[in-house]
Amino acid sequence: MASAAVAAPAKAATRTRTGIPSWVWALPPVAVLGTVFLYPLGLVVQQSFRPDTGGTSARAYADVFASTAFREALGTTVWLALGSTVGCLVLGFVLAVVIAFVPFPGGKAVAKFIDVFLSFPSFLITLALLFVYGTVGMANGLWTGATGAAEGPFQFLTTPWGVLLAEITYFTPFVMRPLLAAFSGIDTGQLEVASSLGARPARIVRQIVLPEALPALAAGGSLVLVLCLNEFGIVLFTGAKGVTTLPMLVYGKAILESDYPGACVVAVVNISISVGFYGLYRVVSRRVGA
């Protein structure tokens, strides 16, 4: 969009060979974007200012902001998203370093698998975790089978920690993909020279690999952050009743309570947080020159 907007004035003046001003070509994408994305978005915002009682007011905002459920959901959403992002960055960086720089048999296959993993639906991972750690899952089954206890020790899956585990498991490849691409661009000569100068592997990772991977880390991290803020499937599928995030709240208000204005308010807040975090990322990344 940006490049089209920049290029348009210059070309419009000269006109194209067919005589059609070039800004005309920008119309179809704008039209599509408007009808399928911006218009519904506008409707959501509009609806949030239209209480069921009629008229236009910010009543719904006051009500929602005043409710404890909303404030808790807001807090849960943000800390889960931040926690998952940090977890994904750390785990993704370590795994990517191993895959990219430690030669081991099957390393290429693992890198390929990362691509496949990205195409999995998020609930699949959650289901897998349920099978392993769920109330009647394998881990608890082994425990009850071995000890004869009525319940296994693994009951964390329906807590926020379960959601965190599922999100980290599912989103880590989203960090690894750009990292592996960045690592493949690092000159192995640099790593070799660094080690011949006396640097151990840990120092090389910290001082050579990490700085060069920062842009990729930022890109992967911001992507995961936004995805986590809006994640719905994982939270729903872990069956975590105690864990209400903003998307869950929207679902609850709209479908279960038929409180459309309230749902729209939460949606607007959710969108603002996503956009806000993304904007923050852009500002910060421009500062550091990434």
């Binding site: 000569g189 640099q190 070799e192 020279v193 080690s195 011949s196 100068l197 006396g198 001082q207 060069e212």
Partner: peptide, 20 residues
């Protein structure tokens, strides 16, 4: 011995300076 314990200076064709 691993490379970092050999105490060798090395210069390669493509310089391999640390860009950052």
């Amino acid at each position: 011995l691993p490379p970092h314990r050999r105490g060798i200076g090395m210069v390669v064709q493509q310089y391999a300076l640390f860009p950052h």
